[in-house]
């Protein structure tokens, strides 16, 4: 069956709400409006205003309330409209959700899922185009997910809700309209990276909204006889070092694609782990394709130039392979 990423996420949320009375969805315009990205359309009528809870524009307040509700025995799903606004809730996510278990000596857990859209590409300019997944992936105590496929959009929420600790889920805004076949076995773990396209000459490692770009680049390279493996990180914390190292030690080369800015990026962390684990297997220095170090511009051609694109990925792969 072909469905959209949005529909896959909607089905996952519906399952969660229908199967566990402790689950509720809370956030800005999740209810009457139907969700900013229309993911929760129809839920308000089906599950009611208590469980599809519209909030004021109080990111710090309602994320904190989600943490408190999780402490109190519920399984909240808090939707922060976008990662850009999550900065207003950063204190509660970092200082409460991530720390409460440790500060209490293991007495309490925070079984909370925080969903947010991320990324650029729609000419929304600098304040609505951030990719700050790495900020969250830096913090011990939270798990960070980046579903980039129809199956992961359908499958990641259930294990995220089953996790007794806070999970932050990034949904790249460019993916919602993506359509694809929902496989029968869409159930998945939230532990491991996945090889999306097997290949032999180079490991192209990426996540989230950059996955389709990496796959496009790999397809183009294949037409020229260049065989590239595409690795989808899926889980940004904890990183699945094993899958990354296994792939790179086989292909001996790596290019990392990350929509975050280069300095202090997740790509930098992946590269460090490759160097730590596969140094003697490498035939060339790893290379990164990241966003340029500029706030994301409004003008379409400038925005496009700031972000990783298939052409840049292809060029980087050719550089590493020297072909």
């Amino acid at each position: 069956m072909r469905i959209s990423y949005r529909e896959a996420m909607r089905q996952a949320l519906h399952d969660a709400l229908a199967s566990d009375p402790r689950v509720f969805l809370m956030g800005e315009d999740v209810g009457r409006y139907g969700g900013t990205y229309a993911v929760s359309k129809g839920f308000y009528d089906e599950f009611g205003p208590e469980r599809i809870r519209d909030t004021p524009l109080s990111e710090l307040g309602f994320v904190g309330a989600g943490i408190g509700a999780a402490l109190g025995g519920m399984r909240p799903i808090v939707e922060v409209m976008t990662v850009n606004f999550s900065l207003l809730a950063l204190d509660q996510i970092v200082n409460s959700a991530a720390l409460l278990r440790h500060m209490s000596g293991g007495q309490v857990s925070v079984p909370l899922v925080i969903r947010m859209a991320t990324g650029a590409g729609r000419q929304l300019a600098a304040q609505h185009s951030h990719s700050l997944e790495n900020w969250y992936a830096h913090i011990p105590g939270i798990r960070v997910l980046a579903p980039a496929t129809i199956a992961d959009a359908r499958g990641m929420l259930a294990p995220a809700l089953a996790d007794p600790d806070p999970v932050v889920m990034f949904e790249h805004a460019q993916l919602y309209n993506m359509e694809g076949k929902l496989p029968d076995n869409w159930q998945c773990d939230i532990e491991r990276a996945a090889i999306r396209r097997p290949g032999s000459q180079l490991s192209l490692i990426t996540y989230g909204g950059s996955l389709p770009k990496a796959l496009d680049a790999a397809a183009e390279l294949a037409r020229d006889g260049i065989d590239v493996e595409v690795v989808d990180l899926r889980v940004l914390r904890p990183l699945d070092t094993e899958t990354i190292a296994e792939s790179v030690s086989r292909t001996h080369r790596a290019v990392i694609v990350d929509e975050g800015w280069r300095s202090g990026s997740l790509a930098a962390e992946v590269m460090a782990r490759i160097v730590e684990n596969c140094f003697y297997d490498l035939d060339a220095p790893p290379v990164r394709v990241c966003s340029e170090e500029v706030p994301i511009p409004y003008a379409k051609h400038m925005e496009g130039a700031a972000l990783p694109q298939p052409a840049k990925i292809v060029a980087a792969v050719r550089e590493v392979l020297n072909v």
Partner: peptide, 21 residues
């Protein structure tokens, strides 16, 4: 809680959980 004001949203959430249960 050592973040000034940090406990207020948590208290709101604890109360919300009680109400919903």
């Amino acid at each position: 809680n050592a973040i000034v004001g940090g406990g207020l949203p948590l208290a709101v959430g604890l109360a919300l959980a009680d109400r919903m249960q």
